[in-house]
Computed example of a mutant assay.
Amino acid sequence: MNSVPTILVPISGGSKIKAGIVGGAGYTGGELLRILINHPEVEIEFIHSNSNAGNFVYEVHTDLFGDTELKFTNDLSNHIDVLFLCVGHGDARKFLQANPFPEKVKVIDLSQDFRLTDKSGIEYETTDHAGRAFVYGLPELNRDAIKQASNIANPGCFATCLQLGLLPLAASNNLNAEVHITATTGSTGAGQSLSATSHFTWRNDNLSVYKAFEHQHLKEISQSLKQLQGSFDKPINFIPYRGDFTRGIIASMYLDSDLTEDEALKLYADFYSAHPFTHVTTRNIDLKQIVNTNKCFIQVQKKGNKLFIISIMDNLLKGASGQAVQNMNLLFGLDEKLGLNLKATAF
């Protein structure tokens, strides 16, 4: 496809942000829809899906029955303000090359295609084939740059959880030892396509390690830490686990540190004081506190000479679609929390 066809239905008036979604049938697309159909400043113009074109959204995302009469389409439209790409890794770059949207359309890509760059500094960017520049969209790291950006590379789920656990140390030049991390993610982190390790019969009552020491999100994490502390050159030893639950990430990290517990707590609290979704606590934390929210909770303790950090968040929200909407709010000058005051499941 060399050009973007327009939808035949007239575009309605008003000042709301007009959004298009590509890849709306998957997990991240579904979470994005759940947020945007209730967002007071957004109007969804199209939800692209080749495999589900013509079907009602609620026929795929059955929990949305009664909430929307929107249908999937295989048409695209230029008459939008923001385009969300909820496609597989490697497909976002191909999609933009085949479907060149006008420069005025802001793009928020939830794949890994535009996350990495050789540049340094807070406004590190990567570009697509047409020179469209992408800013790495971790608000706790690049919020000012995001506000001035045109296009966002949304961070990965593990990358978000782990970075939020380590950024305050890098920002204060206190990341001076190798880091040891164990993190477990829910089955939705594997995406909606079935595989041997995502079937219920395999995943239930089971636990397994994958991509030990070589997970793809390590590159994002190292890039961000060096952005804040250019001298950081220590190993990040990351052991990811597949959990036997549906959603959420819990990560435990430790490293040698000269900081006292009180110093570390103050450092973390100060760093995140202006960020509405990341909260530091001395209490024990658990996944049910954050599942179905855009929050990240961080617990900090000192054990001997080790600084011990626990970071928890929902992989589909703060780790994907919730953060994408947070970035959209920043791009368009809205309240960062708009549409994202979501309640945890609790039980």
Rank of each mutant, 00 (worst) to 15 (best):
I250D: 10
R247G: 11
F213K: 06
S257T: 12
T201H: 11
N206L: 01
L218W: 04
W202D: 15
L255A: 00
D205C: 08
K219C: 09
W202H: 15
H217E: 04
I236Q: 00
Q229C: 02
T260M: 04
L194I: 02
D205A: 10
L225F: 00
S224A: 14
K226Q: 14
P240I: 06
E214V: 03
D258S: 12
S231L: 07
I249A: 10
D256M: 07
A251N: 05
Q229S: 08
P240M: 00
F238Q: 00
Q192H: 13
T260E: 03
L228G: 05
Q227N: 10
D205V: 09
L225I: 01
A251D: 07
I249L: 08
Q229I: 08
Y210M: 01
F232C: 00
Y254I: 06
A212M: 04
H215T: 05
L228Q: 09
F245Y: 14
L225A: 03
I221V: 02
I249V: 09
T197G: 07
I239R: 07
P235M: 04
T246M: 10
K234A: 06
E261T: 03
S224Y: 06
Y254G: 00
F213E: 14
R203F: 01
D205N: 13
F213L: 12
I249D: 04
R247D: 11
L218R: 15
S222A: 13
N237L: 02
S257V: 13
N204G: 13
R203V: 01
G243N: 11
D205S: 10
H215M: 04
E261S: 00
L225P: 11
T246F: 13
D258V: 12
L228T: 05
L259F: 14
S198R: 09
T260C: 00
L225R: 01
Y241S: 10
E261Q: 05
S193F: 06
D233A: 15
P235V: 00
S222D: 07
S224R: 07
Q227M: 15
